[in-house]
Design a protein around this nucleic acid. Structure first.
Lengths: 147, 147
DNA sequence: TAAAACCTGTGAGCAACTCACAGGTCAAAG
DNA sequence: CTTTGACCTGTGAGTTGCTCACAGGTTTTA
């Protein structure tokens, strides 16, 4: 299989295949005649695996780690369970934050029905947004102090 | 006000101030003596506005557009309403997708309680993930069990 | 007067691709 | 047998919104 073949088989962009190869998630052999990359069924499995893991929110370094463990004949599954558990917590946090945001946005849109447009007068840029309260202060007090 | 002053007043990283200046969201004057940037109360309003808009999910180009409309003495608010409506739809879509994901993850974690770890055998990398079904292809029959 | 803190602009790094470019290779058509 | 077009190669840049690093100039503090 050449790049385009494996890409089609996995339903991804050929550039993604090249990118994953660059990132050492795939390790194709080379055709000595023309230096083309040769992928086999195992590579396809790895690629499909990587895509599924990406859909679950795993990062490429995490996926690479899993693949390398598998290469070393260690079972990566316990690790996957851990990563998964962690990722689930993240997902639930993201859901909570987005629900907060949605709530505030719908409330704002409703309130704005009754507000004048407020052409800027040197003091106000857009009162629609300036009158927006800051988000819940609870656990994100120092979000800008560290990256 | 110098960079650090306005940054502190708005609660952001000084590098963010410099970045916004580079991006033409802020247009400080210059002290001719030392070429330092001088920000005033209007700049602070713009910066705070930009931060609030970012919290709402507006992009920097969108924010710049709003600020430029305000500079031209046009009311940006109707535009803000449109952008907002659009953004709200995005947020709701994101919430739906994350809820789908959470559902699948919790189901998977429960199912994995009963699955063997499955040391890789040349055919399988990690059955925990390989047995994960592909996500719903389209507008899945929904359930919103969460509020 | 020297050290610390702050200023300047620019360039790189992050994540995970995606696209562009320039040149090499191959299969089929003329 | 040559041309055409699709595919291959590697590398570098663009995306988004910052954040950090660097090297050198300025101001403040001790």
């Amino acid at each position: 299989m050449k790049v385009k073949d494996i890409a089609e088989a996995a339903g991804v962009n050929p550039d993604t295949v090249r990118f994953y190869t660059r990132e050492n998630l795939l390790k194709p052999t080379r055709n000595p005649d023309n230096n083309y990359q040769q992928f086999d069924a195992e590579d396809l499995r790895r690629l499909k695996f990587a895509r599924k893991a990406r859909q679950l929110g795993l990062s490429l370094p995490e996926i690479r780690q899993i693949l390398e463990q598998a290469d070393d004949h260690h079972s990566p599954c316990p690790m996957v369970r851990d990563v998964f558990q962690h990722r689930l917590e993240e997902v639930e946090r993201e859901i909570r934050e987005l629900q907060q945001l949605r709530k505030r946005m719908t409330a704002a849109l409703a309130a704005w029905q009754d507000m004048p447009d407020g052409t800027p007068d040197g003091h106000t840029i857009c009162r629609l947004i300036e009158h927006w309260d800051d988000p819940a202060p609870c656990c994100d007090a120092d979000e800008q102090s560290k990256g």
